[in-house]
Design a protein around this nucleic acid. Structure first.
Length: 572
DNA sequence: CATGCGACTTAGTAGAGAAACC
DNA sequence: GGTTTCTCTACTAAGTCGCATG
């Protein structure tokens, strides 16, 4: 499944060039040379100054201060009011207390963190004032630790800082929210680099857990996190060769799916009739994944994470069947929490055969039973692999997202519209994808207000327009009467003014529409992860839209390969 | 086959920084 | 010039998927 490799021919120039390169190592090695400075550790704890007090039940106290400050720092956040959060925090906090403190502090509700909280607020205010030095220092750290050398190229590292200690903030109803995320020491850290590179040095008097030289992986640093026991990594920035190449490959796989998707669709429709239950379940699940862009849905360990599901892990309680709904037949209603506990709610009419199958799957089951009891992601992906080399469930999301963007752009862009109108069209196409993938965001806190402000501006612009139109009319009348040069000029001036204001008004209205439609939709995720950037690049080139209207600096860096590769006739 | 682990991609949000506004 | 508003970036959680292990 080798699709070629990307090669950077320049180091970090804005127009980094990529070239085709035929050959690529077949032994699974990801690099030949890797050298870096290691991670930036979290700054050590600074004890609170003496005047900052902590009260327990009205009495002065100071138990396990550092952990207490983690809670204090979050005091304004809703998290700290949640029972589960408080319980988990309190339990972990007690582990850090001396036995004396433990016997004194017995009820979190009698703790008063307000002075600590005030202190940190004041601190962050103060930090804003002297941010210049800090900025300089950050820049120095970035220059020193933010880059590595991989195979002759200086590459930007993604996250070179070790996560600081704090309280775990899970998403949704997470059973571990509030638990103490402990400080990572050099002794917890594994370094990965070339044998023949200059190895990163641990801080004075400490040592790394291990230094290894594994070129079958792309990470530079790893450690095990204590909440879930999972491994965290430091890896390269998306602009790096190694990430770009992988990204490109991903879209090439999706394009191969495009070529055979009709065959697969015919196949799963056929499988709806199978006499084998597992085949039918597989086929219906695949239909959902294809049609609704659902995620695969791996099983999760109960009690370890928030209760969320994807396609294969859907339960009976997550769907409702309606033989008739309004003027539609065979409607399925989905209502479940997906990744990040984002709600997926949708009603979709399905084919009769799918509907009948679903009824069958539901027979004799409790709400908490699996809908697809004969299916999991491993079975599904094995099947997909047989249908097409490299095919897995997530490829459908990539494929459907990209093909939707391409279709929508074709449909929505009109040749004679202005640049702002074209950008609105682009955003609408992007939005169609975000809706398909259910990429949501919390409506901005100030949304209503900012909407109102914009409307005020529009109203004002409208008034200005009608006033200027009146002036134009007046000028015309005057010109008719006098027929002199001066009045002729005046007509021209007013005509131009009207035109300009009309354009401004249109732009504002466009902005308003765009913003309103975007209230709870997050466009970024699909843009960054699902849309073949070559589609956008081609569109931009075709319609002479400035690239930076579509992609900001980071995005242009990430998609440098596509910007370089795609011409206006590119087709996904 | 179930289970767990490792590596990697995908995800929303908080807060910093930049731009617009007054 | 200071404040408000918007945009971007950093952060890190939460998925997917392949593979080893028993």
């Amino acid at each position: 499944m080798v699709v070629g490799t990307l090669k950077k021919t320049q180091i970090y120039s804005p127009s980094t060039l990529y070239l085709w390169e035929e050959e690529r190592s077949t032994d699974g090695s990801k690099w030949k040379f890797l050298e870096h400075k290691g991670p930036v550790l979290a700054p050590p704890y600074e004890p609170l100054p003496g005047h900052v007090r902590f009260f327990y039940d009205g009495e002065l106290s100071a138990p396990a201060e550092e952990v207490a400050t983690f809670f204090a720092k979050m005091l304004d956040h809703e998290y700290t009011t949640k029972e589960m959060f408080r319980k988990n925090f309190y339990k972990d906090w007690r582990k850090e207390m001396t036995s004396e403190e433990k016997s004194k502090i017995t009820d979190i509700n009698k703790c008063n963190f307000t002075e600590m909280s005030e202190y940190f607020k004041a601190q962050s205010e103060a930090r804003k004032q002297m941010s210049k030095d800090e900025k300089l220092e950050n820049e120095r750290i970035l220059q020193e630790y933010g880059f590595c050398v991989m195979d002759n190229h200086k590459e930007r590292i993604g996250n070179f800082r070790i996560e600081p200690p704090g309280l775990f903030r899970g998403r949704g109803d997470h059973p571990k929210m509030g638990m103490l995320k402990r400080r990572i020491r050099p002794e917890d850290i594994i370094i990965n680099c070339s044998k023949d590179s200059k190895h990163p040095k641990p801080p004075q008097g400490t040592r790394w857990k291990e230094v290894r030289h594994d070129n079958k992986v792309t990470w530079l640093v790893s450690w095990t996190e204590n909440i879930q026991g999972s491994i965290k990594y430091i890896m390269l920035n998306p602009s790096s060769r190694i990430k770009g190449e992988k990204d490109w490959q991903k879209y090439e796989t999706a394009r191969r799916l495009k070529k055979c998707v009709e065959r697969l669709r015919a196949q799963y429709r056929e499988d709806w009739k199978s006499k084998e239950m597992r085949v039918r379940q597989r086929a219906v699940a695949l239909y959902f994944i294809d049609k609704l862009a659902l995620r695969a849905g791996n099983e999760k360990e109960e009690g370890e994470t928030a209760d969320t599901v994807g396609c294969c892990s859907l339960r009976v309680e997550h769907i409702k069947l309606y033989p008739k709904m309004d003027d539609q037949e065979y409607v399925v209603e989905f209502d479940f929490l997906g990744k990040d506990s984002i709600r997926y709610y949708n009603k979709m009419p399905v084919e009769k055969r799918v509907f009948k199958n679903l009824q069958l799957f539901l027979e004799n089951k409790q709400p908490e039973d699996d809908l697809f009891d004969r299916l999991n992601t491993s079975i599904l992906n094995k099947h997909l692999q047989e249908l097409m080399d490299g095919l897995t469930a997530k490829v459908f999301r990539t494929y459907n997202a990209s093909i939707t963007l391409q279709q929508q752009l074709k449909e929505l862009t009109s040749p004679d519209e202005s640049i702002p109108a074209k950008i609105l069209s682009y955003n609408r196409a992007n939005r169609a994808v975000a809706i398909l993938c259910n990429h949501q965001r919390a409506a901005p806190k100030t949304f209503e207000k900012s909407m109102q402000n914009l409307q005020t501006k529009i109203d004002e612009k409208q008034k200005q327009l009608s006033a200027t139109r009146k002036q134009l009319k007046g000028a015309k009348t005057e010109h008719k009467a006098s027929h002199d040069d001066r009045s002729k000029k005046m007509v021209e001036v007013k005509r131009k003014a009207v035109q300009r204001i009309e354009e401004q008004l249109m732009k504002l209205q466009m902005q308003a529409t765009d913003r309103e439609e975007n209230k709870q939709i997050a466009l970024g995720t699909s843009k960054l992860n699902y849309l073949d950037p070559r589609i956008s690049v081609a569109w931009v080139k075709k319609w002479d839209v400035p690239m930076e209207k579509i992609y900001n600096k980071t995005q242009r860096e990430k998609f440098a390969w596509a910007i370089d590769m795609a011409e206006e006739d590119y087709e996904f």
